[in-house]
């Protein structure tokens, strides 16, 4: 018989603690001053101190812009990887055959 091994982890306790934290956070939030001075720009997104553009499309950071640093830093890893995904049917088959060959050679040598 197999033991139940998730003994140190209880999602219900986690959720209860999470809710308590939310309550504390709300309590701290409610202690703040509700009558702050509204200015012309309050409520606008903060873009490094620049004025926020009027066009809503320009306010949103779109897909490919995120993680560009990560992609750039790992360019040498990503370039061959993306080039490998050619979308060519023959290449899909060749990969299957290569894997087959490697697995069979491995089994032949090791077993």
């Amino acid at each position: 018989m197999i033991d139940i091994v998730l003994e140190n982890w209880s999602p219900i306790v986690f959720i209860v603690v999470l809710l308590l934290n939310v309550l504390v956070a709300y309590w701290l939030y409610s202690m703040g001053n509700p009558e702050y001075k509204k200015t012309k720009y309050s409520g606008d997104p903060f873009i490094s101190g620049n004025r926020s553009p009027k066009d809503v499309k320009k306010l949103h950071v779109a897909g490919d812009n995120l993680f560009w640093g990560f992609k750039k830093a790992l360019k040498r890893y990503y370039d061959p990887l993306i080039d490998g995904h050619t979308g060519r049917l023959n290449d899909y088959m060749i990969w299957v055959v290569i894997t087959l060959a490697v697995v069979l050679i491995y089994l032949y040598l090791v077993v």
Binding site: I82, H85, T86, G87, R88, L89, N90
Partner: peptide, 10 residues
Amino acid sequence: NTEDMRRCKE
């Protein structure tokens, strides 16, 4: 030709 059917890639 399989070279031309590569619209799904990457």
